[in-house]
Design a protein around this nucleic acid. Structure first.
Lengths: 276, 276
DNA sequence: TTACATAGGTACGATAACGTACAATCGTCG
DNA sequence: CGACGATTGTACGTTATCGTACCTATGTAA
């Protein structure tokens, strides 16, 4: 991946004249490892269109710990709060895996948003995708095992970087997943022993992507499919089809809980509480 | 709270002519308990402005379990995916605590969005608030104890309903927090023994709000303050100030992790990795 | 009045992840 | 070259929460 081979999905979705106008205004720059693109409650001064690499959006807790709520790569943009009318956010965005991208000053960005309905539409769709990503990650963090979440995270990252290797120490991996480093060592160790990945002093290599997908929870596929649907990639059959909603398409979580069948029950009942 | 005493923050933020136009188009309706406002991957046909009660946005997992990623009340709207250019979402929205609100058909809603910059701005700000809520909830779900999360959830709900009592069985409470019902029984039992709440056959009563705030994690205050900041309520000093960011205002989570000090370290180091 | 479903309380062994600590290896820099 | 920091691997006792089951109380409907 080199400068010039544009792949940022927001920018590439624009008509060519707008694309070129933005690129003329934007400053291409290397996004170094751990570079902070915006910080907790500090004014956002630039908006970044990632081309390569992975940026982590993390929520910081008062005990000093932090948990990743989203990863952002070439499919998105860093600085959405500006688009949404805020000047800052109670979260931090920093580069987890180094790469590069384009930087636009907030005034330039706002001017482009103002004059381009296509840009607004692309940002709106990305916002929707981000909400879905953060929601799914939230549920995943609560219910899925470390090993599944490791695999999910590696897949999301692999999708966003060039090649099969990227820099990531277990310390940062643990930070992202909200667990101890030692927990990551064990979980990633299992993936390593099964030859799905290789880990060596801060560099991780994906060896068997298909097996990694099998080792991950459904969250990866759900997220990938939603992004494809919203950004026009290749949609894949939703893995939740036939599971979360029964054949009549009217069943609900509320019903499943209300009807007294537990969370491991895979078939929901027909709805009765549903609004008529 | 009666029909007529408008308090939905999106609608009340609009100029009076627009407010009345929307209310003329909208259908007031009772939002019954467990009514499903939109469902996983099903087309969203109406947008709801909540006036009273609480709607839960939940992610459904393939084992049939579900976890709440956001609560929505009079401060927001159900159907944001439509505003953001999607027709459905891989999540379910259903009334957790009954109430009432206004319903707008998707075409009417889209027409209003089209002609009102103020509505778009309000929806944008709410979208930003929602992203922050979901992110914070995600981190909270991963790191905070059940008791803290119980308290947080009760406070968020208490803010959105009329009076100090509302209907909520432990089964649904557990569903929201992503834990077993028995776990909620124990955690809520502690809050009850301490006289912070009272629990009786599906009705929960907040007895000591101040103590409940003390029992909750910081997430409640962070979320409340961010909503106030974005929607023009009464901002309160951010409880994270001085914790997540050191005096020079340039410290980062990345640095805290990179510098070898653990997650329980409350002071972050000055930044060196930060972009220059 | 009886039967039944719903709601909440409790128990108990199982287990995933925790906090902490320490050792081994490797790279870098004085 | 030698010291030190960074990275990974491993261990051990602890703890929060799990899965499951069972009991009681209460409201509701036959």
């Amino acid at each position: 991946m080199q400068f010039g081979s544009l792949r940022n999905r927001i920018i590439t979705s624009l008509p060519s004249d707008q694309r070129e106008r933005i690129l003329a205004l934007a400053e291409p720059l290397i996004l170094k490892k751990h570079m902070v693109l915006f910080d907790v409650d500090e004014p956002i001064t630039s908006v970044y269109f990632v081309e390569d690499g992975v940026c982590s959006l993390v929520s910081v807790l008062s005990d000093g710990s932090a948990v990743e709520s989203a990863t952002i790569g070439y499919e998105g943009v860093i600085g959405l709060p500006v688009f949404l009318g805020a000047v800052s956010m109670s979260a931090q965005a920093f580069m987890q895996v180094a790469g590069f991208g384009y930087r636009l000053s907030v005034p330039d960005f706002q001017a482009e948003v103002e004059r381009s309905p296509e840009l607004r539409a692309a940002l709106n769709r990305y916002t929707q995708a981000l909400i879905m990503l953060v929601s799914q990650t939230s549920a995943c963090n609560r219910r899925h095992s470390i090993e599944e979440r490791c695999a999910r995270w590696l897949l999301l990252t692999h999708d966003r970087v060039t090649g099969d290797s990227f820099e990531l120490t277990q310390k940062f991996f643990a930070l992202m997943l909200g667990v101890r480093r030692a927990t990551v060592t064990v979980a990633a160790g299992k993936l390593q022993k099964a030859s799905l990945i290789r880990y060596e002093r801060g560099v991780i290599t994906v060896l068997d992507r298909a097996a990694l997908e099998a080792a991950s929870c459904e969250c990866y596929a759900i997220v990938r499919n939603e992004f494809a649907r919203l950004q026009g990639g290749t949609p894949v059959a939703n893995p939740m089809a036939g599971v979360s909603v029964s054949e009549d398409g009217r069943s609900t979580v509320a019903d499943a809980a209300a009807s007294g069948r537990g969370r491991s029950d895979r078939v929901f009942s027909p709805s009765s509480a549903r609004w008529k």
